[in-house]
Design a protein around this nucleic acid. Structure first.
Lengths: 232, 232
DNA sequence: GTTGCGTTAGTTGTGTACATCTGGCCGCGA
DNA sequence: TCGCGGCCAGATGTACACAACTAACGCAAC
């Protein structure tokens, strides 16, 4: 068992499986596990100090979330991020984000504002110290904060599911991405959301988030088209 | 192994698990398994001719869909349908239904119209021969047909997930429901959808479906409030 | 050099024994 | 008669051995 997995060893039953699931999902979404990479049940089980049986439960759950794909005799492959499939996810995420403020959201508290301000500070710190993994981690934490405002549980679950499916798309470009610009845009999104949060206008939070998803999609599409014409 | 499960015995691997999953889900949604009932892994595994291991995979999948809940030492309980939780699902389903025609739907074909007309005929036949189980089965088939029009795969998956979660609510009322009226309403919904289908207007299909979900929610709410005041 | 095939190491899928826990039953005592 | 507490049948959770399958490697024939 590894040191990183020692923390989850204290937990038992369902909580332990949830912790392992979150950890593996985080590794996938931060590209610690590369797309196409084969995860081995035995190795993961040993690392987390469990047998293959519960480990397989976790991987099956990740398969439902479209993050891995088990192939008999081969391994459990981390899914590749393909723009054509993810475009549909983006379109759905845009529509779902509008619903954040429409379906009985939770009223923002000063604690929410403070937490978002901390995220803003972390984002600012990234401008001078670029680190794709740290950027991805910030993105995940930001998402979790945003989700805490969603009062409708099924909507929250659906949003999270679709978010994690697309979370890796930024990381998969390698050096073709202008990180400074991305960090800048992200900081601006957090800033916009803070304005809406301070006046407790969750509807505007949802719309602002939708706009940023929309702009992300446009940038991704431009990038894909450029690289495709470049190949031809 | 039972006779009903002999059909799935020919399949192998993932297809077999999918078939078992659909069958158990159908039994839950048609109230063949009552809410609160304890399903036993061993009994189900024996019936479907598999061991506990793959049977547990199916049940875990049903747990993700909120249709069952595994409790150690007790059994795998079919979840109860509680209005307060399902109200959120209904609100999300209404919004999602509007998206059916907005997110690149498939263009309806004459085959779609014909299939929907067959469903209409089945519904008409139910008026004279009331059978809650047959009504539920019709509802499931209708849903599947409707979903075939949804071009956006993540939306289709989300809609199905939330539909199955609420599919049992009609059945759980027992004799308090006016079946003739429900069948009548359902036939009218199919009729409205047919009008839109014939002119290939999927957007109207989505909106009509949303309206019927909305009216369903109102009727359910009235029913719940009436029964609650009756209890006090 | 290239193509084809048999072998094999290694992976996921399945079956099964055992560990752990739960809820009800039974019996004892007040 | 009621209440409490230990016992136990039976359920899910876990570990592990084995089956089934895949891809790559080596070798032989052309």
């Amino acid at each position: 068992m590894s040191a990183a997995a020692a923390a989850v060893d204290l937990l038992s039953g369902r909580e332990r499986l949830d912790a392992i699931h979150r950890e593996v999902r985080r590794r996938i979404c931060t590209l610690q596990y590369a797309p196409g990479e084969a995860l081995k049940e035995t190795a993961l089980a040993e690392e987390f100090g469990v047998s293959r049986t519960p480990m397989r439960q976790v991987l099956q759950r990740l398969e439902f979330e479209w993050l891995v794909e088990s192939k008999r005799g081969v391994g459990t492959l981390v899914t590749r991020v393909e723009f054509d499939a993810l475009q549909e996810v983006y379109e759905l995420r845009m529509k779902l984000s509008e619903l954040i403020g429409e379906l009985t959201p939770r009223v923002p508290t000063p604690a929410d504002v403070a937490a978002m301000e901390r995220l803003e500070a972390r984002c600012r710190a990234l401008r001078d110290d670029l680190d794709p993994h740290a950027f991805a981690a910030l993105n995940l934490d930001f998402h979790e904060r945003l989700m805490s405002l969603v009062g409708n549980a099924p909507l929250r679950e659906t949003l999270s599911r679709q978010f994690h499916r697309t979370a890796r798309i930024w990381m998969s470009w390698g050096d073709a991405i202008d990180w400074a610009e991305e960090v800048d845009r992200f900081e601006r999104e957090i800033g916009e959301l803070l304005v809406a949060l301070r006046v407790q206008d969750v509807r505007s939070v949802g719309y602002a988030h939708r706009n940023h998803i929309s702009m992300s999609l446009l940038r991704i599409r431009r990038h894909v088209e450029r690289s495709r014409t470049g190949e031809n």
